[in-house]
Design a protein around this nucleic acid. Structure first.
Lengths: 387, 387
DNA sequence: CTCTTTTGTTCACGGCTAGAGCATAAACTG
DNA sequence: CAGTTTATGCTCTAGCCGTGAACAAAAGAG
């Protein structure tokens, strides 16, 4: 490591602090928080403004002395395009440093890779430009290290997302929706500042992420977080994943539909599941029973993971939000070791509603950008002002 | 971060490289591996020698040009005292930088905190001195973040190890044996260089650690790795931990004894378990059946963890070494998701025999020492040569 | 014995941050 | 409304760090 790395480290630290703090900290606060000398902060901010990464604006409130300024995203600064691909729609948003985002488009699709990825690719290519530093995509299936995507319940097998989107040289980050929801929770939700956090995202089945100091555990092949495929039902019913007795069979949309006698899986299940949740809220007995059974199973699963991994806080998103409650907490508590019951982790519904995967996709792009390489590339491709 | 941190970073990197490489790399290799300029390496090594951290000796073999030297531990350099506390004995070793260790003492005890920790404390205090930078202790039970130790099957509850050992100001690192065995495996065993590794240590019950880039996941309360307490037996038999259906009931020494009709737990079980393993090796049917049943259960547990966490390699130590084989691998494979079966992680017996916990205790001491604070303290407490 | 190869040592150079002193801009005081 | 107070930004110097080139050293090759 040399002196150049030192400067890069401090530049990145400052930029990261602005981003993670949602551009809400003044320069003087940043200087104190990062333990920089005022002169150093001065040079760093000037450099970042020069490079069109930050811009300083006057803050809303003043204190006693000389007013400080509020570093925020530069109007010509980097943008991340984030897309949330679901089984029947996709949403596309442009996000700037600090996390501010604008939804650019939403569109339905027919569930085939052809239609879904073709239309999304076209929308993305339309928005590309010199400010775009990467594209992040959240997908409802495991993304392997080689970039191929499987979404079993839509019959997507080994789909090469990068090729289908045809984005050329623009860096593409594809991630599993559950993991990205966890990443978002760690950066802008209830797992912020938590040393070890567990996030469970329930969609058609449960998945999630283990967040260690704000970073999701990727796993060796990039597919950690398949918490739904631990054999916790107690039975040996075959799971579509190929194993038996998986938690997935008892938690998630598929399980919910099966509980009320509907056929699980394939396409239109999301609305039906939402209807069951709504019916349960109004006291429908069958719906309540289905929700309760799911909550018990999820509680047991969370308990198993808490025993094994000792997270400080647990968050739940997606359909799982409807499962958070007394039943789930009791079931989790029963599954805990006596030792853990003394200080059980809080189990919280996500703070980000259904925007978790989208926000996570953004964060994954900025995680790649906020590196020495990312910034060097940005600097190299800016038009020079002098010379 | 300032320029001083830069120097500290490079000093630490060099020292860490010497330690992790078991003092087997020459100065020129280190210079290349760490991408240092030769001049920088020169200054760094000189400083570390000056501080009595390293000493250079002539290497065994010469190549063509000017002979390089082999940086190794200094004869007056730092020592870690590492102790492995088991249910009926303890072992104490002195370890130098690079991992070289000498067993200083082994002694039996009666299983009470009084006898065990009193005798160990006395042995430790005898060996303390200016070279000792810390004491690491491996214990067969969960160590909470507040430093208290429980060993349920010996009726140790809330044992304050630090107070009992009475080591004064010397830093004490107490760790769970399973986690430390995993740490050792990550540094000097089959998990070396593995991005995400899973280690399972089987003693009276199974425990372990998740190793992420060589560092064990501590968990929020310091007690991650209790893999034995996931409800994977399929039943709801009560577990001494307070939960039900735990994997612990089906894997480990207690389970093995129960399988052959002996009473589980308390004191002398280790020899009996070893006898069962030996009998199984000679074909005794009841013993073989017990081992096979354990292996199946452990395989299922490993499969569940592999699904959830996606490790690249799995290692097994302790009694678990006797369980590694075709039965375990098949059982694990059956529990894997189809997706994971394409590239299942290798499941390997530990490379460190039964020295894992002791080595892990050493590593935990050096992990604390090989920090800027640790080195600053060392430097501050050395006798000054000039002035 | 001389050449070649590789490594260690030394030193001038550019870059970095700390810290002090000064300049600045707002709020407070009366 | 003008002087005072307070916090912050800016500028410059000092001290430290790593780089890289030139040189010295030490061994094997021929």
């Amino acid at each position: 490591m040399d002196v150049g790395d030192l400067r890069a480290h401090n530049r990145l630290g400052l930029l990261r602090a602005v981003h993670d703090g949602a551009a809400g900290r003044t320069r003087s606060q940043l200087t104190r928080d990062l333990e920089l000398a005022r002169g150093t902060a001065s040079v760093l901010v000037a450099g970042l403004v020069e490079d069109e990464l930050l811009q300083e604006s006057p803050p809303k409130e003043h204190a006693r002395g000389r007013p400080t300024r509020l570093p925020g995203p530069h109007p010509n600064g980097p943008l991340a395009l984030a897309a949330d691909l679901r089984e029947d729609t996709w949403t596309l948003a442009a996000c700037e440093l600090g996390g501010g985002s604008t939804v650019l488009a939403t569109r339905g699709h027919d569930g085939t890779p052809g239609d879904a990825l073709h239309s999304l690719g076209a929308a993305l290519r339309e928005r590309l430009g010199p400010r775009v530093v990467g594209v992040g995509l959240s997908a409802a299936g495991p993304v392997r290290a080689d970039g191929l995507l499987d979404i079993s319940h839509l019959d997507w097998v080994d789909v090469d997302v990068a090729a289908a989107l045809a984005l050329g040289e623009v860096p593409l980050r594809v991630g599993n929706d559950a993991r990205l929801a966890g990443l978002a929770e760690a950066r802008r939700g209830h797992l912020r500042g938590v040393d070890v956090g567990l996030h469970v995202h329930v969609d058609f089945d449960p998945g999630g992420a283990l967040l260690i100091e704000g970073r999701p555990l990727a796993g060796s092949g990039g597919t950690a977080g398949e918490f739904g495929h631990m054999p916790l039902t107690g039975g040996d019913e075959p799971c579509p994943c190929g194993a038996r007795g998986c938690l997935s069979l008892a938690v998630g949309r598929n399980s919910l539909l099966r509980h009320v006698g509907l056929e699980a899986g394939r396409g239109r299940g999301r609305e039906q599941a939402e209807r069951i949740v709504a019916a349960a809220a109004e006291g429908d007995r069958a719906a309540v029973a289905a929700i309760e059974a799911n909550a018990r199973a999820l509680g047991k699963g969370i308990g198993a993971l808490v025993n094994a991994l000792d997270p400080g806080t647990v968050t739940v998103s997606g359909l799982g939000v409807a499962l958070v409650g007394e039943t789930l907490r009791r079931s989790c508590d029963e599954a805990l070791m006596e030792m853990r019951r003394r200080r059980p982790p809080a189990i919280l519904a996500s703070a980000l509603a259904d925007r978790g995967p989208l926000i996570g996709a953004m964060e994954s792009v900025f995680d790649a950008f906020l590196t020495r390489e990312g910034l060097d590339f940005w600097r190299a491709t800016r038009p020079k002002h002098e010379m």
